[in-house]
Amino acid sequence: MSSTRRGYDLLAPKFDSSPFRTPDGMLDATARALRPLGPFEAGLDLCCGTGAGVERVLRRVCDGPVTGVDFSEGMLAEARRAVPGAEWVRADARALPVRDAFDLAVSFGAFGHFLPHERPALFAQVHDALRPGGLFAFPVAAPPRVGSRPYWTLWGFDAAMRVRNALWHPRFVMYYRRFRLPEVRRDLAAAGFTVTTLALESLGRRPDGSPRCRLVLARRRA
Rank of each mutant, 00 (worst) to 15 (best):
L135K: 06
A12E: 07
G7E: 09
F123L: 06
R6L: 13
A33G: 09
C47D: 02
F102M: 08
G147T: 06
S107V: 12
D100I: 04
R178V: 06
R220Q: 07
L181V: 09
R162A: 14
V173I: 15
R80Q: 12
A124W: 02
A29G: 10
V89P: 01
L11D: 01
S18A: 14
F111T: 00
E183K: 14
G64K: 12
K14F: 08
M75G: 02
D63Y: 02
L27F: 08
T50D: 05
D92R: 09
R145C: 02
L217F: 08
S2Y: 13
R21A: 15
L181M: 09
P36Y: 10
A124F: 03
A199N: 08
C48I: 08
F108H: 04
R21V: 11
A105T: 08
V216T: 10
L135N: 03
A33C: 10
R149I: 11
E78T: 01
E183Y: 10
L37C: 06
S3P: 11
D128N: 11
V146D: 13
L44C: 09
D100R: 15
R145Y: 02
R171M: 07
G156K: 06
L135E: 02
K14G: 07
Q125T: 05
Y175F: 15
A142I: 04
Y176A: 11
G209E: 12
R186T: 13
G43I: 09
A101R: 15
V57E: 00
A218L: 03
P170Q: 11
R6G: 01
D103V: 03
A82Y: 03
E118G: 02
W155Q: 12
A101L: 06
L130K: 03
D158S: 05
S3Y: 09
V140H: 08
F172E: 05
T197D: 14
A31D: 11
L104M: 10
S2K: 14
F193K: 00
L104T: 04
G25A: 15
G112N: 04
L203Y: 02
F102G: 00
M75H: 03
A218I: 00
S107W: 03
S18I: 07
L130C: 08
V184R: 01
G64P: 04
A93L: 10
P207M: 07
H113R: 11
A142P: 03
P36N: 11
C48F: 09
F193H: 03
D92A: 09
L122R: 00
V173G: 03
W152E: 11
K14N: 10
L200Q: 02
D63T: 13
F179Y: 13
L203K: 04
Q125G: 14
R99S: 13
R80S: 05
D158A: 04
F179A: 09
A142G: 05
W168H: 15
D103W: 02
R5Q: 14
Y175A: 06
R21Q: 14
G85R: 12
A82E: 08
A199W: 05
D100Y: 04
D158P: 04
L115Q: 13
G112Y: 01
